[in-house]
Design a protein around this nucleic acid. Sequence first.
DNA 1: TGACCAGAGGATAAGTTATAACATATCACG
DNA 2: CGTGATATGTTATAACTTATCCTCTGGTCA
Lengths: 156, 156
Amino acid sequence: MSNHNHDKCIEAALIEATNICVARNTRFTPLRKKVLELVWSGHNPVTAYELLDMLSDAGRKRVAPPTIYRALDFLIEEGFVHRLESLNAFIGCPDPAHKHHGHFLICRKCRTVTEVKDDALQKNITRAANDLGYSCENNMLEIMGLCHNCKKHSNS
Amino acid sequence: MSNHNHDKCIEAALIEATNICVARNTRFTPLRKKVLELVWSGHNPVTAYELLDMLSDAGRKRVAPPTIYRALDFLIEEGFVHRLESLNAFIGCPDPAHKHHGHFLICRKCRTVTEVKDDALQKNITRAANDLGYSCENNMLEIMGLCHNCKKHSNS
DNA sequence: TGACCAGAGGATAAGTTATAACATATCACG
DNA sequence: CGTGATATGTTATAACTTATCCTCTGGTCA
């Protein structure tokens, strides 16, 4: 995630979300759009309260927590955003058009988060659940470690 | 987890924890023992505040949150207890002697939690991380679905 | 044996994350 | 327009977690 034109990421996410909402006839309101844009401010997780501050800085008059949480609920429901349970934080989904569970790589150093897309892995998870008599309706995998870049530049 | 003698589960967990602490020369104090016992009161996750209430009911004078969190920190550190991130709750580990990451099946109906022990799955996870340039220092998998028993008895 | 020290746990307060409950605004559609 | 449904604003509070400071206890060692 080093030096790319991140504006493109944001723009792409907003356009795709817009298209999906049109297709589904759901309401991509200005607030929801703004929150999605803020979530996409980087490839790092952001917390609800960071979003709150960012929204306020962005010129709106200070909003209260429910405003953010409701927007996030919508964005998660539509698949535009994932929640990182181990961080109580949120991250934009790079592929909202395809329904999937959240599997993430989290760099403990630079906090970059990369989404894992691995069908074999998902199959393996479902299989493991079935082996023990459970159905798998939903699952989340969060892997903490060092990203490629931080591995190179560090000795810890 | 239907009708087993759960006292055996509790007893086994306490004995194993005691042995491990002796081996490691760490202090399994009465408070820590009591908290572990309470965590093991069932095969369901318990929250920190539930433990707080349980401790108080158990005759002690009301303790404050840090007391519980410190005990939990110790128990987690020693591997006796896992934290379920998606529930902000805690569950006893059935195999504390062997270091491993937490992979769980959670029944959304009866809340029974079963720990998954699956080496192939862990290898698969590590491989997926490496494929994307990440190391895997730590990982957590939480699968939500219905357990065998609840599948049989329900139509939702 | 007694001075010292480290670790455990009690007490208070505060920080962080999330939701309930109710009021108001806006939209969609007949 | 009017009405119902959905979105957002507002206030308060619940739920979860940590920081800080202090006391007590049990072990170590001069």
